[in-house]
Design a protein around this nucleic acid. Sequence first.
DNA 1: GACCGGCATGTAAGCGATTTCAGCGCGGGC
DNA 2: GCCCGCGCTGAAATCGCTTACATGCCGGTC
Lengths: 331, 331
Amino acid sequence: MNLEQVARRAKVSTATVSRVLNNASVVKTSTRARVVKAIEELKYHPNLHARNLAGAKSKTIGMIVSNMENPFFFDIYKTVESDAHAAGYEVVVANTDYRSEQLVSSIRLMIGRRVAGLAAVVSEMEPALMDELTDSNIPVVFYDVGTPRQNITNIRVNYRRGIDKVIDYLYTLGHRKLGFVGHHSLLGPINERVRPVLDAVARYPGLEVRTAADSDTLDGGRLATRSLLATGEPLTAIVCVNDIMAVGALRELRERGIRVPHDISVTGFDNIKFSEFCYPALTTVHIPRDTIGHLICDTLLSKSEKNFADHEMVIDPEFVLRDSTGPAPVL
Amino acid sequence: MNLEQVARRAKVSTATVSRVLNNASVVKTSTRARVVKAIEELKYHPNLHARNLAGAKSKTIGMIVSNMENPFFFDIYKTVESDAHAAGYEVVVANTDYRSEQLVSSIRLMIGRRVAGLAAVVSEMEPALMDELTDSNIPVVFYDVGTPRQNITNIRVNYRRGIDKVIDYLYTLGHRKLGFVGHHSLLGPINERVRPVLDAVARYPGLEVRTAADSDTLDGGRLATRSLLATGEPLTAIVCVNDIMAVGALRELRERGIRVPHDISVTGFDNIKFSEFCYPALTTVHIPRDTIGHLICDTLLSKSEKNFADHEMVIDPEFVLRDSTGPAPVL
DNA sequence: GACCGGCATGTAAGCGATTTCAGCGCGGGC
DNA sequence: GCCCGCGCTGAAATCGCTTACATGCCGGTC
C-alpha cells in the first residue's frame, strides 16, 4: 500500500499524490478530490519513515527523562508535548530509570531518529555523550545537568536557594537534628543535591544532619526514612530530596506512630500535585514545571529565529508552606 | 554522515558496513575492526528511518493510553517497555487524554510508523478506527475495549466482578446510601463502569446510589466528591472508579472534617502503589498491571508462533481490604 | 595444473516518499 | 495566427539503508 497504488487508482502521478498529502495548493480542486477519494478507499497511510528519509525535516522531538514514574518528570513532559503538538510536532519519550546505559542507548536512538530537537531531563550526563550530541548537530536542551555549548542550551533550577529556604525555615522553628532523604543516583562524588544541604547546615551553629538514600519511589522514601530512624540520635525533621520520597517518609512515620509535624517535621521538593493530597499536606518547594516545559519547547522549536545565544537559564524556586512542618518538639 | 562515508573511510563497500551494523557474522574480524573504527571516528549514527524503509521490519511497538498521569496506565507501560526491550524492541507511547481526536491521530501516527505491534489501553474505540487497524494488518491488542478480530486480541478485566465484591462488602457492613465517583469519559450511553455499579446496587434491598463525575485526576476526584456531598441525603460510603479519584475524594472529606472510615467509607479501584501511601490507606480492587503488560507483549511479539487464536482473555480482579472502609455509621 | 567449493566482499536493485525540473495545454497580447 | 507565459501534472533523481546476487580469491582434490 504505497503512493504508487494511490496514484494509479486516482490516475495521477505519485508526485501529485504527494502534493495532496502535503497540502501544496497547486493541485487543481478536481484532481485533489480524486486523490483524496483514492486515499480513503485504499485506507492508505503514508509511511513516515519514507517521508522522513525523503524530506529530511523530522517534525518530532525527543525527550529523555530519568523516571517517568515521578510526576515531576511527567508534568514537564506533558507541557512539552502540548506545546509541541501546537507547533505540529510529535514527541517521543524515553525513560532511563537513572541507568546510564539506558541514557546512552536512548540518546543514540534519538540521534538515529534524527529528531528535530532533544530535551534531556536527566540526572547524569557523561562528557563523551555530550560530544556525541554536539557533533550530531541536533538542538539540545539539558535540564539541570551538563554545560552549554554550540547547540546545547541549559535550564537549571537554583536548588541551593530552595534548600536554603527550607533549612532556614526549619532552623528558625528550632530544629537541630535533621535527616536528609536522597535517592541513589545522587550519591555521586560532587553531589548537586546533597551538597547544598550540607553547606546550608554548616552555616548554622548546632545544626546537624545525617543522610540516607534509596530509589526514587514511594517505597524508596519509606526505606530511606526507616534507615534514618534506625540509628543515631532522634531527628526532629526530615528533609527529602523530592515530594515522592517525602510521601514515602510520611508513611513510614505514620506506621511507627510518629506524628507529623508534632514529633517530626517533613519537607518535600518539587511541589507535585500529590503533595497537596497526601496527609499531612507537604511543606515543599515549588519548581515551575510548566515554565520549564515551555522553555524547552521554545528553545528547541526556534533554533533558527531566536539567537539561541542565551545558552543558560536559571529558575528560582519558591518555598511552599503546608502542614507537614511545625516547631521542633521540646525534648 | 551516511553509510557511504563510513564505507569509504574503512575502504569497504556499504554492504559490508551494513553487515557489521547488523552483526552478520560473515564479516572477517579484521574487516569488522576497520569498520567499527571508522564508525567511531566519524561518530556515525545509522539513520533509523532509512533502516526501517529498507528493512521493513520495524522493531518498535506502539502503545496508546488514555491518561499517563494515572499510574495505572504507567504501570502497564512500564512492564510493556521492559518486556519489549528484553526482546530488542522499542516502544513509543502516545497519550490521548480521553480525547477521541487524539486517539484517531495517534493511531494514524502508529500506522504511519509501521509499528510491529500496537497496544491500545484506552477507554473508547470507534468501529471505523477498528476497521482501519484491521486493514493495516498490524497485530493489535486492546485493553478493555473493542472486539476481537483477525489481527486484534482483547484483554479485559472483569470489572463487574470487582465491583460486585466492593458493593457486597459495603452492604454487609451496613452501608445503604452510596455515592459513585466516575470520570467524564465514562458517561457514555452504555457505560462499562457505571452499569455494573447500578446493577449490583439493584440487587440489594434498600441500597441506593447516586453518581457524579469529573476528570480522571486527583482534583477531579475531589470535585466529584464535593458535588456528591452537596445535595441529597447523607452518604455512608463513596465508591470511586479508581484510586486516583479516591485519593481526591479523601482530601475533600478530610477538609470538610468528615472522618474516614468513621463517618464515610471510601473505596478505590486498581490498587496503584499510591493507594497504600495515602491516608487512610485505600480499600481497593487489585488489577494486575504487570500481568496485563506481559500479556500485551507476549501477544504482540509472537504473532507468528502462537496461534493468535485465543483472541480474548479476561482477568479476574481481587478485593484488597485496607483502612478507608468500615462499618456504616449508626445514624 | 585445471577445477571446484566456499568464504568474504562488492554491485546494484529496491524500500516509499519528496522535490526539481521539464512538459503539456491553453488563453491572451501582439 | 504565433508565441509567451502560466497553471497544472508527470518523470526521474534522491534520501540512507538492506539484501539478493555476482564476483574474486583461496586452498584442496584429482
